[in-house]
Write a protein that binds this DNA or RNA. Sequence first.
DNA 1: GTGCTATGTTCGTACTACGAACTAACTGGG
DNA 2: CCCAGTTAGTTCGTAGTACGAACATAGCAC
Lengths: 152, 152
Amino acid sequence: MGKSGADLGVVAGLVRASFLVNAVYAESAREYGLTVQQGQLLCVLMGRPYGMGDLGATLGLEKSSLTGLVDRAVRRGLVRRAPDPDDRRAVHVLLTPEGRELAEDFYAATCRRVDDLAARLSPPERDRLGALLGTIVHENEAPTVFLDTLQP
Amino acid sequence: MGKSGADLGVVAGLVRASFLVNAVYAESAREYGLTVQQGQLLCVLMGRPYGMGDLGATLGLEKSSLTGLVDRAVRRGLVRRAPDPDDRRAVHVLLTPEGRELAEDFYAATCRRVDDLAARLSPPERDRLGALLGTIVHENEAPTVFLDTLQP
DNA sequence: GTGCTATGTTCGTACTACGAACTAACTGGG
DNA sequence: CCCAGTTAGTTCGTAGTACGAACATAGCAC
């Protein structure tokens, strides 16, 4: 179906749509003077504070990679480390007020841009797409790297 | 609808599904001793040779970023630069035989892994998802960073 | 309390990405 | 024909990303 071979297999569709999302994410990050990874860090922390370990698992990074990422975010005043009162080895990473503000702006801009990608879909198509992607996300236990727009 | 809030908005669905695809892509790349960017380069070049300019536009990179990426791929014997007979400033970047072999293996492995992400969808759901993503990809003129499985 | 494990950091290496400045080559107007 | 302006790529300096190995501490189990 579809004129001009517009329909892709699921695999190519997922990969190429991801490429678009990545590009849009990068554009948003750049707009706010962030790197993609820093933007991702802020988005994750919007939900709640994380320990370094959880953060690495969520972002799919080794702990050694994370130290630097958090360091740079700390240096920019976006994030801070707080000691864990129950475990003197552990730290919690959480947004500073400025970090939260920037995170929310970045999040909103990214939502807007990603939404624009799907601009030509009808409301029922959007629902259908959201449901199908939701299935994939949940079946594969994708970590919460990006909150849903309508938060419970 | 959906048990346990399994349905996401389109935006969060796209972002989080992209995160999964990125992770899978990285895993594939690692399996073949490639970085994500090198894998992407190989996948693009599977379709045809590119000039540095077109390549930058396709991958969304500045030309200065591309020089190094291609240099490293050349150093690994995956890719070579060929002079453009019609323009002595320009070069064509194309896969070496080893590069093509690796590209095809990497491509196949990535297809398999991405396909697995959608393993729990029924055939009609997969078709529907492919069609919806195809619309997004075409409406937004996503470059051919990943060939469709059934090449025309 | 002594070994074992878990949490983070440090260090060295390779890669990514950008903009500015540069070289070489093409192109169009005179 | 030649020069000005443009285009294709490279070089260079800077910042950030990502990893594994080695490390220091702190908790935990026995």
